[in-house]
Design a protein around this nucleic acid. Structure first.
Lengths: 196, 196
DNA sequence: TTCTTTTCAGCAAACGTTTGTTAGTGTATT
DNA sequence: AATACACTAACAAACGTTTGCTGAAAAGAA
């Protein structure tokens, strides 16, 4: 019957990806069915396959889109001559803003990546590990330069990244503070915990 | 053929629950099948139903077991006359230790509760909300008494609880620091971030 | 002890659904 | 006329769970 509406310069596939991210976030990748996705998109399930190859393709497009954005930002920050603490703060602010503004995709990438199929799964895991090591290197540099208190850098990264994924709860919450306030509070607690 | 082996005073149902927690943690609740669980237990799928009512029952037993333990601890801490900062630290240490020692169940309770069926789902969500409010009340009390810096208490709770759920990564990691070291580092960063 | 009976706990087979996906066909847009 | 995109119908595979049955262990009676 009705075609998928394409606004602006978004392709029909883009629409499907966007709706898929919302659905995967709400129900989880395994629990979300293609028939449900089709209903949200406003079309029969079989019609989706005119635009995508498989359910798995949807997941790995979402995951790698997000991963690429974070990698780019990390690279950009590494190339500046900010102090280690400033680099950490800027990376954290980027994570927080991404989570506030592109919640669905970032959340799915964070929580549902384990359902990626090979070889994407291995690739993603490697990228993830590498990203964390580079983040930890920034913190270790700060410790050497005595900007940051003497802690295990790996643990610090673990804490910060997971703390940010908790913005999920903020999204769900009824009486929420503003995104800007959330950002300032998170920075105060997280960066405050690093300072000497 | 072979029966489920019951050591000590663990019933066969206990064995199934324990294996289910491990499986749900690894594959996710929806992706884990009863046939897989049966294989891990060493029995045919149908045989599981001599001991349990349904797959859903497994999930809600796991989730409520964990929730009960945390509620008990919170109640106990509330009844002491420690300072707000000390209460926070003790609760955090309890969370960290639970995550280190009873990883499977705590992880499943944290990440897979959304697949609970009603009325357990609503019940669980309410308990969760209540728990966080009481935790936040401790922090707010600390802010009033000027032990803790002026931040949004709800955000602080969100950060701390999610940071702890990140111990998942620590479990997966190859070259890990000891559980005790992990605990001290997390406390240093998280409680350090609260102090004035 | 030995014999009988009840309970426990396993099995294979099948159930009705739901799953992701494909094939073939019609119809609107270009 | 050609291409893009929607539809209906169907597929095999996998799912949670039920049924009916079997043998072993536990309990009771002799």
């Amino acid at each position: 019957m009705g075609r998928i509406k394409t606004n602006n310069n978004a392709s029909r596939k883009d629409i499907i990806l966007q709706k898929a991210a919302i659905l995967f976030k709400e129900k989880g990748f395994k629990a979300a069915s293609m028939r449900e996705l089709a209903e949200v998109v406003g079309v029969e399930a079989a019609s989706l396959y005119n635009h995508i190859k498989s359910k798995n393709e949807l997941l790995h497009e979402i995951c790698f889109n997000v991963a690429n954005k974070f990698n780019e930002k990390l690279e950009q920050i590494e190339s500046t001559d900010l102090s280690a603490l400033q680099k950490t703060e800027e990376l954290l602010r980027f994570h927080i803003n991404s989570m506030v503004q592109n919640f669905d995709e970032v959340f799915v990438s964070d929580r549902e990546w384990k359902y990626l199929s090979e070889p994407y799964l291995s690739n993603f895991q490697t990228q993830r590990r590498t990203y964390r090591k580079r983040f930890a290197a920034i913190i270790e540099d700060g410790i050497k330069k005595k900007e940051i208190k003497k802690i295990d850098a790996t643990t610090a990264v673990l804490i910060m990244l997971h703390a940010i994924s908790g913005i999920e709860s903020w999204h769900r919450s009824k009486q929420k503070i503003s995104g800007a306030e959330l950002e300032e509070n998170m920075i105060a607690i997280l960066v405050g915990g690093l300072k000497k």
